[in-house]
Write a protein that binds this DNA or RNA. Sequence first.
DNA 1: CTGAAAGCGCTAACAC
DNA 2: GTGTTAGCGCTTTCAG
Lengths: 334, 334
Amino acid sequence: MRIETATLKDIAKALGLSTSTVSRALRDRYEISEETKKLVVAYADKINYRANPIARSLKERRSYSIGIIVSEIANNFFSQVINGIESIAYNRDYHVIISQTHESHKQEKLTVEHLASRSIDGLLISLSAETQDIRYLKDLYEKGLPIVFFDRVPDDFETHKVVVNNFKGAFDVTEHLIQSGSRVIAHLTASETLSNTKERLEGYKAALAKHHIEFNPDLVKYCQHGGMVAEEMDDAVKELLLLKPEGIFIANDRLTTGCLTAIKNRAPESAHQIAIAGFTNSNVVNLFSPTLTSVRQPAFEMGKIATELIIQMIEAKRPITEFQTRVLDTEIIS
Amino acid sequence: MRIETATLKDIAKALGLSTSTVSRALRDRYEISEETKKLVVAYADKINYRANPIARSLKERRSYSIGIIVSEIANNFFSQVINGIESIAYNRDYHVIISQTHESHKQEKLTVEHLASRSIDGLLISLSAETQDIRYLKDLYEKGLPIVFFDRVPDDFETHKVVVNNFKGAFDVTEHLIQSGSRVIAHLTASETLSNTKERLEGYKAALAKHHIEFNPDLVKYCQHGGMVAEEMDDAVKELLLLKPEGIFIANDRLTTGCLTAIKNRAPESAHQIAIAGFTNSNVVNLFSPTLTSVRQPAFEMGKIATELIIQMIEAKRPITEFQTRVLDTEIIS
DNA sequence: CTGAAAGCGCTAACAC
DNA sequence: GTGTTAGCGCTTTCAG
């Protein structure tokens, strides 16, 4: 439903000018006399004129808006990233359009293509857990859509990326568990295909190696659905508990809370004996019991940086050829 | 950035037809012969044609999208509502545009007006905590923008609304605290101006009255920032603890977790003596310690209903004159 | 059944 | 310095 609003034509008619003069006056172009500008601006203000962004988009083939794709907004990490994005975008006069994939590749592709047809100026995306094939993103990119990846990034795509040092985060927290006295440390992780879970697994292994603890593959459990399916986590926890771990390192947000729940339900007595650590950006970890050592990602910061990069790409005069991968440090809170 | 895509013109040229014929064929109009339709559809499929939604919006003065305004997406309640909204909207071929107010009235007005200028077909809105003046919404509404309020609704606005039974939710949970043995029950709440906190206060009072407990205004603490400012909550908790409450009933999500934190920090020894209950849609309350009795709102359901109502308004042939206020029940989880 | 043409609101050559 | 005009991609009268 379009609401009746004043148009350039209305202003032009009222002031006895042409629409182009009005348009130019409002955009403060040098060709227009100060007098006319004042006149036009004053009248536009008075009638509370707002340029129609749709018409503008159609004409200019851009929309002054940035598309954001995340798997779930009901996830502290992503909502914090989004806040970071907005904090920069609005100051630079960009709007943002947020979309969720719910971890579905199909949904992701559909949404991205829809955003593209809406003339978004750039795309900030964290890939869905399912996504393998990024051909469709490459196509859009090659046609000129600026893309910056964050968090879950593909390795075969040349553009700006913003990630955390997953290896180091995992290494440090695993070492933390070791230093707190655990030697038998389990690792609960998501699908092997995600870049960041791979890196976290490597960090875990490296910390074990450093402390001369032999890596035991049985202590690593994969949850393909990355914490979206309670049963899967419960099964994994059940099997893990049989191995009597002294510590558990969990690779992502949803798995962390899901696994905590499973342990609490399954083995309330031993829950407090096992040292649990995991990646999460929850704001309420301090309330958890059993207590949790959390690996926190600088989500807000990540959003800010990604946005600066995408705006830089959007506003670049000539195609960018030098791309950066910004790696941020995680923080351990225990 | 507009990506190069095929247009109606391209199809028309390729097939030796006019754009209007192609347009009609794709929209399956009766005037076009089956033959031509097949031809056009086949070709459109082949080249993966997608109508440009911007051009369509400009022409039709609508966008097949629904605007959503919430205070924070980093809030389980709202993100669940949004999921409910999407679940209906996408099936009915509407896109959604999500915006946050961060509880700022100014931001709210700005965003709503921007969405309106983007030709959204309808608006789903939960008012910001600051919002008093809804004149600007009335104006848009009168100009023809369908609006459905949810959660935080104004009382002087005739349209569909979806809310929870705040009175009953508060009454029940307060009674629950009483029945668990508390007689001195504090109430921590947000700004008095929000409709739902008012109702929750009333429910609390009514439960006390029913059980012949005298209402003590000192036991009610208001946090103007509704849980956005830690200090405010901490002060309120500090004062409350002096009054030795046996139970505390907290009126909203952020306050609930914030207050739990404050109690835990301030009085770890007594935290487990006090029965705490509060409104929250957190998915991880089961992990909390001290334990919490939560009043949960049917957020997903709320989103679904609001969306059905807004689509009904959007697609109504004639102006709607009969409005409903749907009241959903909360659920107590302890 | 199909085509020509106007127009949604805006911007930007190109006149003058 | 200002106006005229074309056109972004689409839908939709109005003609034929």
